[in-house]
Design a protein around this nucleic acid. Sequence first.
DNA 1: TGTCTTGACATGTATATACAACCACGCTAT
DNA 2: ATAGCGTGGTTGTATATACATGTCAAGACA
Lengths: 247, 247
Amino acid sequence: MSVRAMPPLPGEPQYLRLKRHVLRQIAAGVWTPGDRVPSEGELTREFGISRMTANRALRELADAGAITRVQGIGSFVAGPKAESTMVEVRSIRDEIEQRGQRHSTDVLALGPASADPTLATAFGLPNGAPLFHSRLLHRADGRPLQLEDRYVNPASAPAYLEQDFRVATPYAYLTRVAPLEQAEHIIEADLPSKEVARDLGIMATEPVLVLNRRTWSRGRVASVARLIHPARHYRLSGKFSFLKESP
Amino acid sequence: MSVRAMPPLPGEPQYLRLKRHVLRQIAAGVWTPGDRVPSEGELTREFGISRMTANRALRELADAGAITRVQGIGSFVAGPKAESTMVEVRSIRDEIEQRGQRHSTDVLALGPASADPTLATAFGLPNGAPLFHSRLLHRADGRPLQLEDRYVNPASAPAYLEQDFRVATPYAYLTRVAPLEQAEHIIEADLPSKEVARDLGIMATEPVLVLNRRTWSRGRVASVARLIHPARHYRLSGKFSFLKESP
DNA sequence: TGTCTTGACATGTATATACAACCACGCTAT
DNA sequence: ATAGCGTGGTTGTATATACATGTCAAGACA
């Protein structure tokens, strides 16, 4: 049994102290991209901790993308976050309700459909394969906020057409019966077709923000959706931070 | 010394086997959101591994958002990915060059500026504080693809005005002198002003996709940028996956 | 000079152990 | 009956140890 020289006091776990130490050096510019980060052994000696604790700190920093590690060589400050950050895409219903508004849904269309070449490609199904289709209008306090045009793979959600989408969103239903494995998003700006403009109650000259979402479940494309928002009332936003903890 | 009953053979680390086992149960719908996941102790006995290995597997699954863990209670399948996924935002230069096109930059404006109320709020600086301003046009094979209107905190990048942005993008320079800590994005669709339409060479009736980016460095707002893209030629895309590993 | 071996060092994984923090439940004493 | 306590289960953190795997450089050897 060893009595630690340094009291266990922190209140903050050691591996977090270590992570923050490294992140502070990087944030302060002391260590810059490409620089070598102290090895596990060095940190072990310097901080009086065990190698496993240093290992956990460095491993989590690597998972977060702050550093890269190479077996046999060492750990290094990662390039400036690979020139990429993230934007979060959340469920329309949550967004509306979180803003304190009332969410309601109009079911504009719901029924079987047949895969045209574009859809067939998106689903990886043969041309003319049977699909389900729904077209919903989501409102926030009565005002149209999202027109949701969705095609669903019957193999993933056989009972799709029997759902009452005025009470549960397709997204909620789909994630229940077809666990989400993967999602792809493409965001674009566009002008609405005459039909879309009518449904959203906007002018055809008013731009819309379009979110195309494709989801996979059990190895299959489960759903292809086109979510159209009036630009005047909708924005996507997201924040990204290196530091899971306080900074 | 213990001889393991199960040979160490996998080739695949134990903690990964365990992660994939749990993920497969979830993906297959065997365990659904809210269900209890076996405890570390149960996994230890069931798989003949040590508790630390089970702990690592479950902890990483929790970090990835696949499960949630409550001290004293247990681990549970997470709700359908918190109804949120991510979209990656990459550097314009990378995007252009990765598509095999040539990237070039026109410097439309570069000089000092003064913070108007909106900018002052965004930077957290007093009204009228000095800022640097740049307005660049990024082209792909000569065609305008992004109009970059950027304000920079002089405290974060004192030599900003001396840079030659025809050879290095502001983003590349900024991440070198002011390590990125945090980034915020707001995406919107809009119609361009007459000036923007002229710079991008599009009609004033053609929508644009706008990415507002605010970045932090060393605790300060370092840069506020408005990146305007012609909708006809630009999309944001991203893919998200639960499973870091194969399936 | 050129090639091979060996050792130092780094990360990657796995185990056994220990203690702390937290929660649910049942039992006990009031 | 109720308040309080203990106990067992569960996660959270930390350590010491071991072996595997990968890199590199110095030295041994031909």
